[in-house]
Design a binder for these strands. Structure first.
Lengths: 125, 125
DNA sequence: CTGCATCCAAGGCGATACTG
DNA sequence: CAGTATCGCCTTGGATGCAG
């Protein structure tokens, strides 16, 4: 839990942020939004490197279309890197960028935040 | 920036999380997702307490319908509290719960993560 | 003042078939 | 193997009018 002083600092920063128009938080959420992107990032966090069909097998329910679209968007946002090897047949490997890996602490804190709440709810029953 | 050891710890937790089915991260993102919820939370972070029409005025472009829906969902998720005073006319005030306020450090870090990236991009030009 | 009911549009998402 | 093309649904969000 953050100290009161830290919270104060955060608050000032947030206050300066404009939630109405383009704000960094919304931009950031947009990048990891969508139905499948967290799944993809999760797989790449675990395996370091992964191929197209590997991802498709591991992410239950995803279609070619969505996997393809999501990967392209993640690449454009520089969360992942696409490496193509022109062998026969073609081999393509996806890995996380530093930016992608830096999401890790954030995802961790989101988990904590969520679990804290659920635990409190359980206890108060 | 987190230490290597911390990252290791985070990674293990994330690895255990199942991204395919219901995972805490997705649940958490769902709660602050939607087009207007961050705007609302931002206003409440700034003003501590806010009435319906005040929010409507401050959040440019939001309609009654969306404000109403978003507020109800945020209340169900226990991020905000709805206080109704049966005066004439009715007065309703919204405030953040502790859970809502605890989002602050998270939002802060999202901002940092996003800005880091943008700055690096600028510098490399 | 604080909403809800209704209807409507746009876009995210998905199924299927096809290609280099 | 690693995708693209096409088409259609369904959810999310928005406009408007009404109500307690």
């Amino acid at each position: 839990m953050a100290s009161k002083q830290e919270l104060e600092k955060y608050l000032n920063i947030i206050k300066e942020s404009n939630f109405n128009e383009k704000c960094p938080i919304k931009d950031a959420l947009e990048v990891i939004g969508g139905k499948w992107k967290l799944n993809i990032l999760g797989q790449l966090l675990r395996k370091e490197v992964c191929r197209f069909n590997q991802l498709k097998r591991d992410i239950s329910g995803i279609t070619n279309t969505m996997l393809s679209n999501s990967l392209r968007e993640l690449e454009n946002d520089e969360l992942i890197i696409r490496n193509q090897y022109n062998e026969m047949p073609v081999r393509v490997e996806y890995t996380l960028t530093d930016r992608g890996r830096n999401l890790l602490p954030l995802l961790y804190e989101l988990t904590i935040w969520w679990d804290d709440y659920k635990n409190n709810k359980e206890n108060s029953k």
